[in-house]
Design a protein around this nucleic acid. Sequence first.
DNA 1: CAGTATCCTTTATGATACTG
DNA 2: CAGTATCATAAAGGATACTG
Lengths: 121, 121
Amino acid sequence: MDAPNPYAATCPTRQLLDRIADKWTVLLLSLLNDGPIRFNQLRRLIEGISQKMLSQTLRKLERDGLVARKVIPTVPVTVEYSLTPLGETLTRTIDPLIHWAETHMSAVNDAQKLYDRTARG
Amino acid sequence: MDAPNPYAATCPTRQLLDRIADKWTVLLLSLLNDGPIRFNQLRRLIEGISQKMLSQTLRKLERDGLVARKVIPTVPVTVEYSLTPLGETLTRTIDPLIHWAETHMSAVNDAQKLYDRTARG
DNA sequence: CAGTATCCTTTATGATACTG
DNA sequence: CAGTATCATAAAGGATACTG
């Protein structure tokens, strides 16, 4: 009786997109793929991210079971973030996207320029 | 002299994410992957999308050179949308993501429940 | 170092009415 | 059918100050 289509509001695809379709999530996952890393290291690596968004995005990823947070009781405290096994499976599917961006974004930019010259005044 | 890291504000990955990280783009690409389709067909298939967002998202995809728009001069007019070859290459990299969602989102939902029971309350 | 809290601006999205 | 225009709201993101 349920709608069989994968585009229903509650389908897994929609759920996933609602979670990762933001400015920083995919970028973070991709960075964490290189191994465990500390909060301020991430902050320095990702140009332009605010402390608030880094913290918020990491907490969401932790809640989703995609990222593990490990507190090391140094003084001051050190916190290390890493992918969980589940997070690794997701990151592996995201990786080709990064590669696509590197090889095809220039074509997209060209298409935009063409569109703006023709379809517009 | 440029920052060599792929997380710089202007890197292709950031550009791509800024473009597709919204509520509907990936979903639309995935649907268009099944073949050419008309405006209102898309609208009916994607539960919850507004006319405005469908129109707006399609135009952006067209501008990016990812989707082709074909006007068929019937009365009233028919408009058919389809992936361009460039759009097809992107959609192929996105496809595994849909599959990941179908097989792993239940694990994510479980993780969320666990997190909410422990890290909270 | 690794955050939280608060305020504020921008962007994204939605509802509704209208058109060739 | 396939849109556009306008108004309104919600959600995302950023700046800044503060804390164990």
